[in-house]
């Protein structure tokens, strides 16, 4: 696999998938494997990041991603601190750099950040020595979700090159669609998008082909159908007329599920699922549904990410300067 490749330099931050070279994606995925093996041991923890501190800076609530990162950090023996961000007490956005200044004084080594505004992790990364991991910024990127999706898929389809993934739903507002498609594209997969015209923009990357019906999309013979979560408020902004119509045209209905099952297509969803909107109940228990594995693999992938990044430590910064 990547055994012969030259060792890759460690990067400071993980802000998006786009800036990763394909070899880096593969390296991060390969590194996740030994971490997943740890989960079968009696002690699931390794001392790799002992003495390091990981700060969870979540401006947007997200139980799943946050818990996943917390477990990942703790299994690497890092100290985890939650920075309580009260979005109500400060004017939105204004506090970011002030907060970063405070964090800089706390000398944290890693900052895991989620924010509703795109580019906030980039902003923080520019102003801190700590390694910044983007845990989702607005519609921009969600790189660890993309890595865990790819990891999950590689467990069942070891060579992803030439495989096809059909991403269905709200492409426009989805950081998952952006990051996961980029990641899968870097691993050689073919990408297809299907969704309402209001939610599948023409400004998408060239590599993603579009479809005008679910039937056409399935006729393309995808290996994977990746269903995106539909934010229910899209209905109020005239993106879709009704949830009923969405499900009928863009959802996995019982009839479409039979087609998917007959073709042996794998099904993914970043969660949480709106049952009866993106998919019907039966999909959840389908033997080729990867929805639950995605959650478990999230921890191993995030361990791999934290382990692979390199914060600018106080010691190293001093070494480079004229320290005593």
């Amino acid at each position: 696999m990547s055994a012969a490749a030259a060792p890759l330099p460690r990067r400071k931050d993980l802000l998006d998938i786009e800036s990763l070279a394909p070899e880096e994606v593969v390296q991060l995925l390969d590194t996740a494997r030994p971490f997943k093996e740890l989960f079968t041991r009696s002690v699931k923890k390794v001392p790799a990041l002992r003495g390091k501190s990981v700060l969870m800076l979540f401006y947007e609530p997200s139980t799943r991603t946050k818990t996943s990162f917390e477990i990942a950090a703790k299994r690497l023996s890092a100290d985890v601190t939650n920075f309580a961000v009260s979005t109500s007490s400060v004017v939105k956005g204004e506090s970011v750099l002030d907060t970063v200044e405070t964090l800089q004084a706390m000398k944290v080594d890693y900052i895991v950040v989620r924010h509703s505004s795109p580019g906030v992790p980039n902003l923080i990364a520019r102003h801190t020595r700590a390694s910044v991991v983007n845990a989702g910024d607005g519609h921009h990127a969600h790189p660890t979700q993309a890595l865990l999706d790819a990891y999950t898929l590689r467990e069942v389809l070891p060579d992803l090159a030439g495989r096809r993934v059909l991403i269905v739903g709200d492409i426009l507002h989805s950081r998952v669609a952006r990051s996961t498609s980029r990641c899968m594209h870097k691993l050689g997969m073919e990408i297809g998008y299907f969704g309402p015209g209001t939610l599948v923009p023409d400004t998408r990357p060239d590599f993603a082909r579009g479809f005008t019906s679910f039937a056409d999309a399935l006729a393309w013979k995808p290996d994977v159908v990746y269903l995106l979560r539909l934010q229910l408020e899209r209905m109020h902004a005239s993106f879709i007329p009704s949830l009923r119509e969405y499900h009928t045209v863009f959802g996995v209905t019982p009839a479409r599920f039979r087609q998917i099952r007959d073709a042996g297509i794998w099904v993914m969803h970043p969660g949480p699922v709106n049952r009866g909107v993106e998919l019907v109940d039966e999909v959840m228990t389908y033997e080729r549904s990867l929805i639950n594995q995605q959650v478990e693999n999230g921890i191993a992938t995030r361990m791999s990410v934290l382990y692979s990044l390199q914060p600018v430590t106080e010691a190293r910064a001093d070494d480079e300067g004229a320290g005593p």
Partner: peptide
């Protein structure tokens, strides 16, 4: 500007 770049960055266009 709404375009490829705004889509890529996830910034409303």
């Amino acid at each position: 500007n709404e375009g490829r770049m705004s889509y890529r960055l996830g910034v409303p266009g």
